[in-house]
């Protein structure tokens, strides 16, 4: 019975893709590859959980969680942005490790290591098509796909989205053309923070609500971004789905299951090798 694995893989993969799109928007606009992305999502989920425990209206709690991730991301962009603009891509990425550790430290300080789950009312509603699918899973899949599409359209059509693409294409020229670089960058930090918050909530409901675990989920997300060659939203979506499905399906067979957790690395490495073959690579060049 392979169907349940495909479904679970699609759901998880779509969430990797959703996170990946958030990372990509930020990377393309500001040149910052945010390794703190998982931690942002974790913070959003933990905070939402805490507020639900406090008997806050769940929808409100989720909204506050997402807002907090947005605010954290924006704040980091505000404080570190001027410095990040002056350093190379590798230093930028390294600086975000600081963000990851900072958020993780606060989370470990605020919350102990007890079991937690983010339970949605839709978890209990489900139907069977050879395998059981819950409404939550459908929502994850639909929301992730919708947001990826909406982000594409936003970048393509909206003035600020166009400005973001202009920054990604040629920063200096874009600024000479009158783009308010700092403002657009902050907007990218905010948008990516919000996407991180949303995917953090959904990921925690589909995997584990644990700060450390969610912080490290940045790894498969990064792999999805690699598949998108650090530039393509569609490529990132496909990358996330492929990683999710391969990981789940390979876990179904005894001969491949010990290696299923290595899927993000394998997929990312294959893509890099393939691109090297065609001599179109490296982060620096892609920018």
């Amino acid at each position: 019975m392979i169907l349940p694995f495909i479904v679970a893989g699609l759901v998880l993969g779509s969430l990797f893709a959703l996170s990946g799109v958030g990372m990509l928007v930020l990377y393309r606009t500001t040149g910052v590859l945010n390794f703190g992305y998982g931690a942002l999502g974790a913070a959003s989920a933990m905070l939402a959980w805490q507020l639900v425990e406090l008997r806050l209206q769940p929808v409100l709690a989720y909204a506050i969680g997402i807002l907090a991730a947005t605010a954290l991301s924006l704040l980091f962009g505000f404080l570190a942005g001027p410095f990040l603009a002056t350093v190379n891509t590798l230093t930028k990425a390294t600086a975000t490790l600081g963000l990851a550790l900072f958020i993780l430290g606060i989370m470990l300080f605020m919350w102990d290591d007890k079991a937690r789950t983010l339970r949605l009312p839709t978890d209990t509603i489900g139907f069977s098509i050879g395998t059981r699918i819950t409404v939550t899973q459908l929502i994850c899949l639909a929301l992730a796909t919708a947001i990826v599409i909406a982000t594409s359209i936003y970048l393509q059509r909206s003035p600020t989205g166009t400005a973001m693409r202009a920054l990604a294409s040629d920063r200096e020229l874009a600024s000479m053309l009158g783009i308010r670089v700092r403002r657009v960058e902050l907007l990218a930090w905010a948008v990516s923070g919000a996407l991180g918050g949303i995917s953090g909530l959904l990921l925690s409901s589909q995997t584990r609500l644990e700060p450390v675990f969610l912080t490290f989920i940045v790894i498969p997300v990064l792999a999805a971004v690699v598949v998108g060659r650090f530039r393509s939203l569609v490529g990132t979506l496909v990358g996330g789905l492929v990683i999710g499905v391969v990981q789940a399906v390979s876990s179904a067979f005894p001969s491949t299951s010990p290696f299923s957790n290595a899927t993000p690395f394998v997929v990312a490495t294959l893509v890099i090798l393939y691109l090297q073959r065609r001599k179109v690579v490296t982060i620096e060049v892609a920018r």
Partner: peptide
């Protein structure tokens, strides 16, 4: 977007974070 200035974004972000932290502390 023209309504957002860097300063007001900072103020907003800090405000949200403070509120969120407070609520979690109460919890």
């Amino acid at each position: 977007m023209s309504a957002i200035t860097a300063k007001s974004a900072l103020a907003l972000a800090t405000g949200i974070l403070l509120a969120a932290t407070l609520s979690a502390c109460v919890a």
